[in-house]
């Protein structure tokens, strides 16, 4: 086994894992209790929301598209789950997820059918979903009276997991399998790399785009419905900055904005990195503003390093030093 080749081939992945480990080491060294199971449970609960949304969004990014409607979907799906959950949470969950699937398919069909940018299409659905959320909730926070449901979705499993976080992990594994082991998954990646070349090679590019949006819509709706049952309430304002967080997680996880590059393992590391950063900063009592600044700095740092920023800077410095003095 050649470790050098392994390191070279997986340099970016190793860097991402190293960053996550550096964060964990930093916080655990600076504050006792960061690695306590109770705090790890809290970290995984945050991952349950961000991870699930980021997994779905990443599939559209890998397919060379973008789903701007995921934040609004989380909000409206939560409201639908509560409104439709009168006869039971399972019914509410099913209706919300079916709604997410439907809107996802609609996003995909409009994108491939109209031949316009998915940014335009999903801005439209985002606005529509936000309006729907306000309309359904009457501008209010809607509440759910079945306390047992909250206890069920957030019950502690194996010390640090809950049904919510396990659903997020399972969703990530499913998409990982889809991308790695199925023809459809390969079509999604090929479509994101070069749509024309993929079509010429026989890939089902239109199906790939529709499926990627269907996954994104479904995952966002699932995340919203589970969050609503966890909080026993849902509001039209939920998920305000979730879109940015999910995009950050995807980029931190190595998903390329141009499409065709990225995988669920990376997105999981990206989402865990962000949740560890936010959890750790909250643990040491950082302010809201400091947490936002840190999120932005971290993203910029990773993007800069991934693009070879330090190497280019070193080259510039070397060139400057070597340049002969002019009179």
């Amino acid at each position: 086994m050649n470790i050098a080749k392994l390191a070279r081939d997986n340099r970016a992945s190793l860097l991402r894992i190293a960053l996550l480990l550096a964060l964990v080491l930093y916080f655990s060294a600076n504050r006792a209790g960061f690695l306590d199971t109770g705090n790890l449970f809290s970290l995984m609960q945050a991952f349950a929301l961000l991870g699930l949304v980021a997994f779905g969004l990443s599939v559209t990014m890998i397919a060379g598209e973008f789903d701007l409607s995921v934040g609004a979907m989380v909000a409206v799906a939560g409201i639908i789950a509560i409104k439709a959950g009168g006869s039971g949470a399972a019914a509410g969950l099913a209706v919300a997820v079916a709604f997410g699937l439907g809107v996802g398919i609609l996003n995909g069909l409009l994108t491939v059918g109209l031949g316009v940018s998915s940014l335009v299409v999903t801005v439209g659905t985002q606005i529509m979903l936000t309006g729907l959320a306000y309309g359904l909730a009457g501008g209010q926070t809607v509440s759910y009276e079945n306390f047992q449901v909250a206890a069920d979705v957030d019950q502690v499993i194996a010390t640090i997991f809950s049904p919510r976080s396990l659903v997020a992990i399972a969703a990530g594994v499913l998409v990982w399998l889809l991308l790695r082991c199925t023809r459809l998954g390969r079509d999604i990646i090929a479509t994101g790399s070069s749509r024309e070349a993929a079509a010429a090679a026989g890939a089902r590019t239109r199906t790939a785009v529709v499926v990627s949006f269907a996954i994104s819509g479904t995952f966002a709706a699932l995340a919203g419905a589970l969050l609503a049952f966890s909080l026993l309430s849902a509001a039209p304002t939920t998920g305000g900055d979730l879109l940015l967080q999910a995009v950050s997680a995807a980029i931190l996880g190595g998903v390329a904005l141009a499409g065709g590059i990225g995988g669920m393992a990376g997105v999981a590391v990206g989402a865990l990195t962000l949740t560890a950063l936010n959890n750790g900063l909250s643990f040491i009592g950082a302010s809201d503003a400091a947490i936002s600044i840190s999120n932005g700095l971290l993203l910029l740092a990773v993007v800069t390093i991934s693009a070879g920023g330090p190497a280019r800077l070193a080259e510039l410095v070397r060139a400057r030093i070597r340049r002969p003095a002019t009179s």
């Binding site: 860097l15 900063l281 040491i284 009592g285 302010s287 400091a290 600044i293 840190s294 700095l297």
Partner: peptide, 26 residues
């Protein structure tokens, strides 16, 4: 190269946390 990148990442992380620490409550 990997070591240099790790160093750069660690530096970035330290700068990032430094900012956070500036804003953290004592």
């Amino acid at each position: 190269r990997v070591a240099r990148s790790l160093l750069a990442l660690t530096t970035a992380a330290v700068v990032t946390f430094g900012v956070a620490a500036c804003g953290s409550s004592d």
